[in-house]
């Protein structure tokens, strides 16, 4: 049973990280390489607020504040990136991709210089364990899981039941069609970058509460996310979720049976096999 819990914890991490990336890809038709650094900023937002508010606010409350502040700040950063890079280079997806690659190193080094290259960890805002049916469930992990579900639910409601969300989906499916219906591309791009970046930050705050926070955490998460969205089918949100669970299961099982160090290789080989036989991914649209 512990395995099931571990699978769920790992999968929710993959989901929370990869979904923002997939969302941005769906609309912008390019990858935001700095997504990993946005996620890292979320982690540092938590670390800084916990340090600042120790003794002033209860850690649980600080955690909530960090979610809100992190999402807002990084969301605004996403808007700045949209205005300075994506908008200027529109119709040149490859240039955008390379520019964000450059940006990711700029942000990474900025954090190394400002805070230091060493990893940090924060005490769990919600400490303690629950023993249930023979499983050891750290409360913080459950909280992270709960917030990920809330986050996914919020994203679902936004995309399915708001006019703005419907416009975002319409743009992702058919850009020209959306434009013909009078949807403003600039508007949608700004919204998507705000939401996608905020999702990265939320993911960073959530994971920062259970993992080590370091300037390099984004890069490490990013390459796993690439594998997930390629296997899921680039641009497909549901594909990303399915693939996240697939790799959550595989990686957890490998770790459980003592082969955890080979998990990255196995994941990459799975990706290469999927590319060989299902080039558009599990749930990706036919090219």
């Amino acid at each position: 049973m512990q395995i099931v819990a571990n699978i769920i914890f790992l999968s929710t991490f993959y989901v929370s990280f990869a979904v923002g990336l997939a969302l941005v890809f769906g609309v912008m038709r390019t990858i935001n390489f700095a997504h990993g650094e946005f996620y890292m900023f979320g982690g540092y937002a938590l670390w800084m607020l916990i340090n600042a508010f120790t003794g002033i606010l209860p850690p649980g409350a600080t955690f909530i504040v960090a979610l809100i502040v992190g999402a807002a700040v990084v969301g605004i950063l996403g808007i700045l990136v949209q205005l300075s890079i994506f908008h200027r280079l529109r119709e040149q997806p490859f240039s955008i991709f390379m520019a964000t690659l450059g940006l990711s190193y700029v942000l990474q080094v900025a954090v190394v210089k400002a805070i230091g290259p060493m990893g940090q960890s924060v005490p769990a805002p919600f400490p303690g364990f629950i023993l249930f049916e023979g499983m050891v469930l750290p409360i913080q992990r459950l909280v992270v899981f709960g917030f990920t579900v809330v986050m996914m639910g919020g994203l679902y409601l936004f995309l399915m039941h708001t006019d703005l969300g419907r416009a975002v989906r319409a743009t992702a499916q058919n850009r020209t069609g959306a434009m013909l219906q009078g949807i403003s591309m600039n508007h949608i791009a700004l919204t998507t970058m705000f939401v996608g970046s905020a999702l990265a930050a939320i993911s960073g705050v959530l994971m920062g509460s259970v993992l080590i926070i370091s300037p390099f955490m984004g890069g490490e998460a990013l390459w796993r996310a690439f594998i997930i969205i390629i296997v899921g089918g680039i641009g497909s949100l549901s594909g990303a979720v399915v693939a996240a669970f697939l790799f959550g299961i595989i990686d957890t099982l490998m770790t459980t049976f003592g082969a955890g160090k080979f998990a990255p290789m196995v994941d990459a080989i799975i990706m290469l096999l999927v590319l060989s036989f299902l080039p558009s991914g599990l749930l990706g649209a036919r090219e």
Binding site: F94, F262, A268, L275
Partner: peptide, 30 residues
């Protein structure tokens, strides 16, 4: 790796080679 990765184009190619290369680097570690 040509067979799978050359099925992809542009940044998609970049991503698949990124993952393949990182896996190879993991081999050096593991």
């Amino acid at each position: 790796i040509a067979y799978p990765v050359l099925r992809t184009r542009h940044y998609y190619f970049f991503l698949s080679t990124f993952a393949a290369g990182e896996a190879l680097r993991q081999c050096y570690v593991q």
